[in-house]
């Protein structure tokens, strides 16, 4: 589990890593620790999955990826483990989850988010997913976002 120092490390790096030649030493100085401890803790947090990855976190919209399609699929329960893994492995799928159905309005249990420069580009990618999924999906749809009503970063208490 996370200890108090990990929590401080989260708070200190939530805005990003210092843009200096020795960023881990800069963090260490700020937290009153030594560089080796910062590096070893970050490595541990990566290993346990508390940190998903370290690097550039792109802003899709600012990069021109303004079409955001949530593709949703009604996949037979016995096939979802295999299908989900294959869909998630596509390089243009940014999130891929199984979620509960809410019938009759919402029969879908597999969600795969697809970004593109245009809606047509997203539709073409969804068509690729459809080929991959094949008859395991009884139905699918793409829900495009028409407006961003709110977008804030993840907030983690220190």
């Amino acid at each position: 589990m996370l200890d108090a120092i990990d929590r401080k490390l989260i708070a200190t790096t939530q805005a990003g890593l210092p843009l200096v030649a020795e960023p881990y030493r800069a963090l260490a100085d700020e937290l009153g620790l030594d560089e080796a401890e910062i590096v070893s803790r970050l490595g541990q947090l990566l290993e346990t999955g508390a940190i998903r990855r370290i690097g550039a976190i792109p802003n899709h919209y600012a990069l021109g990826y303004t079409a955001n399609g949530m593709s949703v699929w009604d996949v037979a329960d016995e096939a979802i483990a295999e299908i989900g893994a294959r869909v998630g492995a596509l390089d243009f799928v940014t999130h891929c989850y199984e979620r509960p159905r809410h019938p009759p309005l919402w029969p879908y249990n597999l969600f795969a988010m697809v970004h593109g420069r245009t809606r047509d580009e997203v539709r073409a990618k969804v068509a690729e997913i459809a080929v991959l999924v094949g008859p395991a999906a009884r139905a699918h749809e793409v829900l495009f976002s028409t407006r961003i009503l709110k977008k804030t970063g993840l907030r983690i208490a220190a």
Partner: peptide
Amino acid sequence: LSRFGPLW
């Protein structure tokens, strides 16, 4: 880039 660093 929204950020450069760890993605928690």
